[in-house]
Amino acid sequence: MRILIVEDEAKTGGYLQQGLSEAGFIVDLVQDGLDGLHAALEGCYDLVILDVMLPGMDGWQILQRMRAAQHSEPVLFLTAKDSLEDRVRGLDQGADDYLIKPFAFAELLARVKTLLRRSKQLQPDNYSIADLTLDVSKRYAMRSGKRIHLTNKEFALLEILIRRPGEVLPRSLIASLAWDMNFDSDTNVIDVAVRRLRSKVDDDFSPKLIHTIRGMGYVLEIREE
């Protein structure tokens, strides 16, 4: 699972990134509020750990912009302010939990796991667009009532696309989510995987759903033919 940390204190941010990485998470660290907002809106994260006091844009503003953009991933606030007013403000604006600095890493890790479990329970198991259906829990895909047999990577790729219909997903994001690797512009592994998935999902059906956006990435959507 992927976690975004927005924390301007380099020592604290590095400590959290290392600890959560050792706990098995994929962790990105950003130290500026504006960069944090961009990462939260453009990335695909299961959890955001957000400091309140940040350069460029504070945590309150980032949270407001995330929720206004319909980003519902859980947010854990970190703050040095131990006041009821601040905690209520954060929860009212859509934060899911609140941790006061200084804190023990074990407590943060426990809260992270709790938030991720709760978020996973709220996520739908079934996705559909046009006549394509994906059942995540049962691990099968169907189109026009016909079962589509996918490899594990093809299933992961289709799940990434169908969870964000109509959104152009860059190759770099697909690489990090499906392959847990940094995107290398010299490799065509993403393009090959999409071609194989498209041959199973689109070639024998209409309308076509997987589209290439030249120079940008791929999108799953219904287009008029």
Rank of each mutant, 00 (worst) to 15 (best):
D46R: 14
Q64M: 10
M53I: 12
L50M: 14
L78C: 11
I62T: 12
M57Y: 03
W60S: 07
G59Y: 09
H38D: 13
A68S: 13
L29Y: 09
D58A: 11
S72V: 14
D32T: 05
Q31H: 10
L50K: 09
G59V: 08
H71F: 09
M57C: 05
Q31N: 10
V75Q: 06
V52K: 06
I62H: 02
A39V: 08
A68D: 14
R65K: 15
D51R: 04
G59W: 04
P55C: 09
M66A: 07
D46P: 00
L41A: 03
I49W: 07
D51Y: 03
Q61S: 15
L29P: 00
D35P: 00
G43P: 01
Q64G: 07
L34E: 13
L37P: 03
D51A: 12
Q64C: 11
M53E: 12
V75T: 10
R65P: 00
D51V: 12
V48Y: 01
D35Y: 09
Y45F: 15
C44P: 00
L50N: 00
G43S: 07
M66R: 05
A39D: 08
C44T: 09
E42G: 04
R67C: 05
L76G: 04
D46T: 06
D32R: 10
A39Y: 01
G56C: 08
H71V: 14
D51N: 10
A68F: 06
V30D: 01
L50G: 08
A68I: 06
Q64A: 14
Q64Y: 03
M66N: 02
G36K: 11
F77H: 05
V75W: 01
F77N: 04
L37C: 07
G59C: 11
G36W: 01
H71T: 09
Y45T: 09
R65A: 15
D28E: 14
P55H: 10
V75E: 06
L29I: 13
L34I: 14
Q70M: 08
E73R: 09
V52F: 00
V75F: 02
D46F: 02
D51G: 05
I49S: 01
D35L: 14
D46C: 02
L41R: 05
C44D: 15
G36R: 04
L47C: 09
L29N: 07
Q61K: 15
R67W: 08
A39R: 10
G56I: 12
G56P: 08
A40P: 02
L76S: 02
A39N: 01
H38Y: 10
I62F: 07
L54G: 03
A68G: 02
E42I: 02
Q61P: 01
A40Q: 05
L29D: 05
D28C: 02
M57S: 08
Q61L: 12
M66V: 13
F77G: 01
I49V: 15
G59K: 07
P74G: 10
G56N: 04
D46Y: 04
A69Y: 02
S72Q: 15
A40E: 01
E42Y: 07
Q64P: 00
